[in-house]
Design a protein around this nucleic acid. Structure first.
Length: 210
DNA sequence: CAACAGATCGACT
DNA sequence: GTCGATCTGTTGA
C-alpha cells in the first residue's frame, strides 16, 4: 500500500501540470494472474487541440474518444502493430488532453511482472518504456476507458511519496517528430528507469525487395 | 555507446 | 496505401 487513491477532481488538470503530479505516483493493476504496482518516474504531456503530436489534434475519433471524457480515466491505444501505451486523461469539458506513462519502477508484484515480461533485459523491476510498462501491468485494449479513481477498477492510481520539485527534470518528448522544441517530457532525476531519449523523425522504408 | 532496420495492426489520407 | 506517442537485435565507431 502506498498512499490514497486519487480523486477525479485532483486529476482534472492541464496535462503539463498533471505530469508533475503523476511523477512519484503509483499505478496498480489487477489481472487474472495477480496485482502489480509501479511507481511512475517518467511521463509525457499531450495537450490535444494545440499539440500536433497528440492523437486528438485532428479531432475526435473512435480510438481517442476516451481523451474527451472525464479526467482520471485510462486511455489505452495500440501502436506499431504490437504495443500498447497507457495515458491518464487530464482535462475535461471539451479540452482533450492526457499524460503518457513512459516508465516506472515496480514496487510490488515484481515476480508477476517478471513472469509477464521474461525477456526484460537486466533488471526486471524496471518498467523502462511505455510499452513495457503496459505489459508489466497487464494493460491492453480491454482496460481502455477504465476509471482510475474507482476502488473497484482493475487499474487504480494512488498518491506516492512527494517528489521534490528540484529533482524533476523536463525535456523534449521521445519519438515525436513535431513540436520537438516543446519540453513536455518529465522525469525524476537519477532514476534508473528513465528511458534514453530517441529523437522522432521520418524513417523511409528501405529494402524494397525481400 | 550510438544509430538503424524490422516487426505488424489499425487509424487516417 | 502509408505511417505511427515503440522495442529489440545487430552493426559500426
Amino acid at each position: 500500500m502506498t498512499g490514497r487513491q486519487f480523486t477525479r477532481r485532483e486529476l482534472a488538470l492541464d496535462p503539463v501540470e498533471l505530469s508533475t503530479l503523476l511523477l512519484g505516483a503509483v499505478i496498480e493493476a489487477t489481472g487474472p494472474d495477480g496485482t502489480v504496482a509501479v511507481r511512475l518516474v517518467e511521463v509525457e504531456a499531450y495537450r490535444g487541440l494545440d499539440d500536433p503530436a497528440s492523437h486528438c489534434y485532428r479531432g475526435q475519433t473512435p480510438r481517442n474518444a476516451v481523451m474527451w471524457g472525464p479526467a482520471g480515466h485510462l486511455y489505452v491505444y495500440f501502436v506499431y502493430g504490437m504495443h500498447f501505451c497507457a495515458n491518464v486523461v487530464g482535462t475535461e469539458d471539451g479540452q482533450p488532453g492526457a499524460v503518457l506513462l513512459r516508465a516506472g519502477e515496480v514496487v510490488s508484484g515484481a515476480d508477476i511482472a517478471k513472469a509477464r515480461r521474461p525477456s526484460a533485459r537486466g533488471n526486471g523491476e524496471l518498467a523502462k518504456g511505455p510499452a513495457i510498462l503496459t505489459s508489466v501491468l497487464g494493460i491492453d485494449k480491454a482496460e481502455n476507458g477504465v476509471d482510475l479513481t474507482d476502488p473497484a477498477s482493475p487499474v487504480r492510481l494512488y498518491t506516492g511519496e512527494r517528489v521534490p520539485e528540484s529533482s524533476i527534470r523536463s525535456g523534449p518528448r521521445v519519438g515525436v517528430a513535431m513540436a520537438m522544441d516543446t519540453p513536455w517530457r518529465f522525469w525524476i532525476d537519477g532514476s534508473p528507469a528513465v528511458s534514453t531519449y530517441r529523437r522522432g523523425g521520418k524513417r523511409r522504408a528501405s529494402a524494397p525487395g525481400r
